[in-house]
Each structure stands twice: as structure tokens, then as C-alpha cells.
Design a protein around this nucleic acid. Structure first.
Lengths: 234, 234
DNA sequence: TACTGACGTCTCAACATGTGAGACGTCAAG
DNA sequence: CTTGACGTCTCACATGTTGAGACGTCAGTA
């Protein structure tokens, strides 16, 4: 598996932070958890500590630093909620989960989570996918005004009848539409005035998701419903 | 000002994240905000995006990524609260603020915030300071049991009478005790059974803090009180 | 329409920086 | 006392980072 960003120092530093997100670590534990040479692990941890991304606890272990909390407070709250939702949805359904928004001619993946192993569909955050195929595309298209919907249907893998069905039952399904062997189901996320602003999806191998279980469908609809509510405290 | 961690790529990447914590940025804005060359800013932003620390919004701008929120959820909640508290305290008092815990023979700074400019006292998170001088040391010593307190008083800049005063009025002050020209006031943070577990402090030039205002003192006591309460929701 | 400038993305040789084997001091256990 | 594990630091050199510049796209202006 190639997990490299192209900037080696960053990859290693992220490995340090990911290890510390699991548990506080002594240097020796950090070396084990990251596989880095000891001086490298030490140097990067100290450098991260300099910037507040890592701290030391009273026992001298490295722990995640509070600057992460400061920055997290500046993460777009909607984006953070979407990520929470897909993590939960993945755990409840056992499949990959994503949230998409319309972006230009496509749909942008703004949150994504997948099972840790086994056969699964991988869509990275930031991926721009087609609006012409896939259950999320159907959801984002189904509630457009008729003129925009007509434009969207040109060259699409789905039909006007299919979009009418999506509107009636409130969720969409696709089987191998965007990518062979991949099935997905999606539901709309709406804003305060009922406008569809995003689609939340689960996707996986067609053998498993051709017949989504009632539990999976309910989890999807619940996630869409929660994301459609105003955030707590507002 | 030398703000280098010793690892240049990390310093630059932190500059990118700090810029994005202020506002979403196009690449051009990121170049202006960070002073990095355009290809460098681009490459680091894309690498950070690969790891989920940065995302792209629907307009293509770089924004902070939701992995920060995931990791922030793993930051020790007490540590995150302490950092919130010192940020607030700094804003309310106009002085530097810190939270200290006992650690070995010293006191460890676990949260710190300072005014953006002007004459101020700088104590970095992770700094291990003496228990023999300073208002925070007085607070951490004042409520020790008599045997431990007696040991702590040996060689200390403060007296037993001073510690009795601290216990009576509930806060401590020091004038140039730890460092010439620096004054500070501190108050105790207690746990559920009244044990002092930390000291919260404001510090600054002696000219300003020799006579703390009633507002500054109240803000300090309020911060200590809030940190002494159980976290919301528990 | 053509031109210009700004933008984002990518290349690649130069060289600056990151790396880790190993040194060193401390501490705990046998 | 010896040994091994730990954390911290050094420094030669291999590698990774860098940014001037190239390139394509787009929008604004003459």
C-alpha cells in the first residue's frame, strides 16, 4: 500500500501523530508504533512539540498537543460533522461511507471512511467524481429544478424515471453505474429550508450491497437526517 | 524571533495550517499568508491534504481538514480545557497566562497563551520550571501536607508565612522571584475532592503586574474555578 | 479577436536538510 | 558491579526538498 504524500517528513510526522492519537507513548513505544528509527522519532516528536501539536505529560510521555484542539475549533463545523457521520455510518454498516457536495460539474467527496480491511470501495476526501452516474449523483440531481435536472440527465447513466423514484422513496441506489462491481445507496442531506445540499452514501462490492439490509438502509437515512438538522447548540 | 523547530518542512507545514486556521485560502492567498514559494506552498498543502489535515472546499480553496477534528477528539480533555482557559484568560487580562502541574521536582507548563505583541512573559508549553520560586510554585506548595511542604520550603524564595497567606486568601503573587522583572499571580485548580492538582497563572512585566487590577484577579479566580469544575456533560 | 496577467500545476538539477548508526550518560534490575 | 533499556545528541552523507521557470487555462481589457 502506497500511503506516501510525496513529502517524506510529513508522512513520518503524521505517523507520529497517528500513533499518539491511539495512546500516550514513551519514545520507545513511539519507535515501535511508527517503525521509525529512534533519533528520527525523537526529533520529529520534539519538533512537533515545539509547535504544540505534541506535548509531554507529567510522566514524560509524548501526548497529542492542545494546538490540535485550537485548530480543530477552526475546522468548518459542517465538515467536521460530516466526518463524524461517515465514521459512525461505517461502523454501523460495515461498508465505506462518504458525503458528497456538488462542485462545478461534479460531486466532491468531503468526508470519507472505510473499513480497515477486506474488500471495500475507496474514495478519498477531495475526490471529484462524475454527476452522470452513481447513487449520490442521483440524489444530488433528483431535487434540482427541472431545467437543471434536464441538463444533468443528458448523457447520464440514470433516467428521469429513476430520479422520480428517488424523490418518492427518499433514497437512491446504483449497481455498477460509476464503477464496475461497486454498488451504493445514498440519501439527501437538506438545509433549513429543505434544499438538498449534500448526499450521504455507503458503497461497497456489488455482491454485498446489491441487497442492502434494512439496518444498513436505516443507518443511512438516520445519518442523512442528523446531518440535515441544525448543529447542537444553535 | 527564532520560531524554528529544527525541522524545516514541519515549520513550513505548520505555517500552512496556521494560515488556514485564519481563513480558507486559494493557493495565491496561501503564498501571501505564508511567504513560501508558490510550488512549495502548493506541494505542502497537497501533501497535507493527502493526510486529511487539509481539504479543498467546493470553490477549490484550501481549508483545514477534518482529520484535525478526529485527532482533537483524542487530545486529553483536561489539557484541551486548560488551553481554552489560558486563551480566554489572556484575552480578559491582557497578560500571558499558563497552567502548571507538578512534575518531578518542578512544575510543568501544560498550557500557555500570550499577547501577540508588546512586552510579555513567554513560557512555552512543556517548560519545566522551578518549584522554589514563583506564584505558581507557591500555589502548588501551599496545600501540600506539612512534611512535603517543609521539604519544599528548603531553599525556596518564599516562606512558610507566605504559604499560609496563600492558603488564607486563595491566590499567590510573586515579584521577580523566578525571573527578574517578571511578576505573576496564581490560583489553585482543585479536583473533585479538593486536592490541588494545578496552578493557573497570569504573568507579565513587574511594572504592570505588581498591582493586578481587581478585574485581572477576578478573571484568574474564575478561570481556576472553572477548571476545578467537572467537565460539562459528565 | 488578440494580448496580457494571474492562476494552479508540474519539472528537475542544485544543494540544503533530514537521516540513522552509533556515542554517551542515566537509571533500574539482577 | 554489570548489563540492558532508555532518552538525547552528533555528524557524514544520501536523499529529499526546493523554487526558477515552463506550461496550460481562464478572465479581463483594448
Amino acid at each position: 500500500m502506497d500511503n506516501g504524500s510525496g513529502v517524506g517528513v510529513l508522512d513520518k510526522s503524521v505517523a507520529v501523530l497517528a500513533a499518539l492519537s491511539e495512546a500516550p507513548c514513551s519514545l520507545a513505544e513511539l519507535v515501535l508504533a511508527t517503525g521509525l528509527a529512534r533519533p528520527t522519532a525523537y526529533r520529529l516528536a520534539v519538533a512537533l512539540a515545539h509547535h504544540g501539536l505534541v506535548d509531554r505529560d507529567v510522566e514524560g510521555r509524548f501526548v497529542l498537543g492542545s494546538r490540535l484542539s485550537e485548530w480543530a475549533a477552526d475546522v468548518d463545523p459542517w465538515r467536521a460533522r460530516a466526518q463524524d457521520a461517515v465514521l459512525r455510518l461505517r461502523d454501523e454498516t460495515g461498508e465505506s461511507a462518504q458525503v458528497y457536495r456538488s462542485s462545478g460539474d461534479g460531486r466532491l467527496c468531503i468526508a470519507s471512511a472505510e473499513p480497515p480491511h477486506g474488500l471495500r470501495d475507496t474514495v478519498p476526501v477531495g475526490a471529484l467524481l462524475t454527476m452522470k452516474a452513481g447513487s449520490a449523483a442521483q440524489v444530488l440531481a433528483a431535487w434540482l429544478n427541472p431545467a437543471a435536472r434536464g441538463l444533468m440527465l443528458e448523457g447520464a447513466a440514470y433516467s428521469a424515471d429513476r430520479l422520480a423514484q428517488v424523490r418518492r422513496r427518499g433514497w437512491a441506489q446504483s449497481l455498477g453505474e460509476r464503477e464496475a462491481g461497486v454498488a451504493s445507496i445514498s440519501a439527501p442531506v437538506t438545509d433549513g429550508v429543505g434544499t438538498v445540499i449534500a448526499a450521504v452514501s455507503i458503497s461497497g462490492p456489488i455482491e454485498r450491497l446489491a441487497q442492502p439490509t434494512p439496518k444498513q438502509r436505516q443507518a443511512l437515512l438516520d445519518a442523512a437526517d442528523q446531518l440535515s438538522q441544525p448543529p447542537p447548540g444553535s
